[in-house]
């Protein structure tokens, strides 16, 4: 079943066309990846899905409902949570309170206790020992995990991860990938991941979309997509023989 469907999304910033008629579908309980060079429009796409931008054309269907034009907090309550490329913790609040914000304001937890859920999330992400710390005191790596934890606390159906692997060393990337896989399996949450680190996407995603200058230039299984000529050209440039 398709949980998230983007239909012919257009977005302009002044004269720049950030997205040109982008279609994308995400299957329920799968992991999908979006890759592309800098400025390709990946984060813009996330901003449209989460309601920060209104698309100039096209619409977003989530869970069989049209969510185009809804406010970000309404979309969060429906079950789409996201992380930010540049982390945005509530610095002057304790880690536990940060997570509680997600648990209390995100998608309703039914009859579950928010405090218990917050503790569960902290244990899952390995931040439980830092629960009483102010968020500003977390290290870089912890902050990356913390962003995922707060989004997870919102009890989403689908989790949008914006470059969570950026800046991590290879060992940390492996750990983070394991965690993302576990979120997908154990909590049954669909994941869409934007990534520069191709290793991460390769290991995780079942399906990848490649964006370049706001256009979709490839879609499919990672091993197939990265062999496509236009994808190679977008990342590495035209082959020398081809030019000659």
């Amino acid at each position: 079943m398709t949980i998230l469907r983007l239909n012919k999304i257009d977005k302009r910033f002044g004269g720049i066309k950030a997205l040109k008629s982008v279609d994308f579908e995400v299957e329920e309980a799968s992991i999908a990846g979006i890759v592309g060079p800098n400025g390709a429009g990946k984060t813009t796409l996330f901003n449209i899905v989460t309601g920060y931008y209104k698309p100039d054309g096209g619409y977003v269907i989530f869970d069989n409902k049209n969510i185009t034009g809804l406010k970000p907090h309404q979309i969060c309550k429906m079950g789409i949570a996201r992380t930010y490329q540049i982390v945005r913790p509530f610095k002057d609040m304790r880690v536990f309170d940060n997570i509680m914000v997600g648990a209390k304001f995100g998608r309703p937890l039914d009859k579950r206790n928010p405090e218990k859920w917050a503790r569960e999330v902290l244990e899952f992400t390995g931040l439980i020992n830092r629960a009483n710390e102010f968020a500003r005191n977390l290290t870089f790596t912890e902050l990356r995990r913390f962003e995922v934890a707060r989004a997870l606390a919102c009890n989403p159906k689908i989790l949008l991860l914006d470059e969570v692997l950026a800046g991590l060393n290879p060992a940390e990337v492996t750990v983070a990938c394991e965690m993302i896989k576990k979120i997908n399996k154990e909590f049954n949450i669909t994941i869409v991941i934007i990534e520069h680190v191709l290793k991460g996407v390769w290991a995780l995603a079942e399906k990848v979309m490649v964006l370049h200058h706001g256009e979709k230039i490839g879609e499919g299984k990672p091993e197939e997509v990265f062999k496509m000529k236009q994808v190679e050209e977008a990342y590495l440039g035209t082959r020398w023989e081809a030019v000659a």
Partner: peptide, 19 residues
Amino acid sequence: LGLMSIKNDEIAAESCGIP
């Protein structure tokens, strides 16, 4: 709790479901 999140980071607060 919502107000303090807004003070800390309004954009993050909105995306955590705070109106």
